[in-house]
Simulated scan of single mutants.
Amino acid sequence: MPAPPERYRRFRDISVSERILNTVFLLTIGLGYLMALANMYYTHQGLDGKAGLSVEDIVISYHGGKDQTRLGTAINGIMKSNLKYVSDKDVILQWIQQGAEEPAYEEKIAPILNRDCIVCHTPTINPSLPDLTHYATVSEVAHAGGATIPTLVRVSHIHLFGIAFILFFIGKIFILCDINVHIKRVAVVIPFAAMLLDVLSWFITKEISSFAYVVIFSGALMGLSMGLQIFLSIYQMWFFSKNNRSDKD
């Protein structure tokens, strides 16, 4: 006698406790992603000297500006209000214009940055922000050009490791949805593919500024696909299969 076909688990097969656990996890991840978007906005916006996030801000972040440095645009824009004394802006800009040399950095610039900036611009606190704790990394943003290759490697390996785990657990929950299996298989791959495209486009944008549009597209695709998985999972857990689900604790 042939063995009965294998029955795959769906949301209707899991207990109420497991649904609660899955839901609070997904909601927390969703909230965390919104905070990550806010962090990205405040990290990159205003680099072109204008309020708000634009494609030009992304270009400056990764490729660099033609006539400006990342530190100079930040001091003139979004970071200006963080300086304790207004006159410090002119001190930093003058240092940049004079070549951003190390002796003047140690004498004039380091005290300002240590007082007003490193509370956020420290790798252990926020690895996505430029490191302003010592001259070698400050020099990277004080000269023309975008993010350096070592910086991109450091940020991308953190990004890949962290986001991959999040997408895996979201996908593990999402595959319990009762939808077309082919759609499901494509849906779990899209956010991973978008994440890889996003990171790869950072390095390409470093050389080709027009790839900033790919950075924006891939980041949006990853967020939308992840958000759709979260929404469908919560919907099916509590509403779609409510007449057929188990009453287990």
Rank of each mutant, 00 (worst) to 15 (best):
N76Y: 05
M237H: 09
T23N: 01
Y85Q: 13
K108R: 05
V215S: 01
S246P: 06
L197S: 07
I78H: 15
S233K: 04
S15M: 03
A100T: 01
Y62N: 13
I20A: 13
L47A: 13
I230D: 06
G49M: 14
S225W: 09
N180V: 05
I163C: 08
A136R: 11
D88F: 02
I173S: 12
T151M: 10
M195C: 07
L34M: 14
V91W: 03
M40G: 13
D57V: 13
I163Y: 10
L132R: 00
P150V: 04
T122R: 08
I204S: 11
A212N: 03
L113F: 15
G219W: 14
L21V: 12
D131Q: 09
E140D: 15
C177K: 05
E140M: 11
E106K: 15
T148Y: 05
P2S: 06
S17M: 07
L152A: 05
N76M: 12
V91F: 09
V155Y: 12
P127C: 02
K80M: 14
S209G: 00
I179Y: 08
F169C: 04
T43I: 13
G64A: 00
S225A: 15
D48I: 07
H63P: 06
Q98M: 07
S246M: 11
D116G: 05
A51H: 08
A193F: 09
M237C: 08
L83D: 01
E101N: 11
L200S: 15
E101S: 14
I175N: 03
N76S: 09
V91L: 14
L160V: 10
I230C: 01
V59A: 04
L200D: 06
L224R: 03
F25V: 13
R185S: 05
F168I: 06
S201D: 07
I29W: 08
Q229F: 04
T122I: 02
H121N: 10
A193Q: 03
Q45Y: 10
F211R: 00
Y8R: 10
R115N: 06
S156D: 08
M237Q: 15
V55D: 10
P4R: 03
L228P: 03
Y62W: 03
I149D: 00
A187P: 09
S139I: 00
D198S: 11
S54M: 02
N126I: 07
I112Y: 06
N126G: 00
P5F: 05
V186R: 11
Y105N: 09
G227Y: 08
S225P: 13
I204A: 12
L167W: 09
D90E: 14
I29R: 01
I166S: 02
D131I: 11
D198Q: 13
L31P: 00
G64M: 03
I166V: 13
I190Q: 01
G64H: 04
S209Y: 15
G77S: 01
L160P: 01
N114L: 04
V153P: 02
L113S: 05
M222A: 12
L160A: 10
Y85G: 00
S156E: 12
A110N: 10
H44K: 07
A220C: 06
P123A: 06
G72C: 08
W95H: 08
K242N: 06
L21C: 00
F25I: 10
L53Q: 01
V155N: 10
V86R: 11
F168R: 01
S218P: 07
I204Y: 05
E18G: 03
D198L: 15
D13H: 14
V188A: 02
Y41P: 03
G30T: 06
D249P: 12
D249A: 14
A193H: 04
E56M: 07
S17C: 12
G227D: 11
L37S: 06
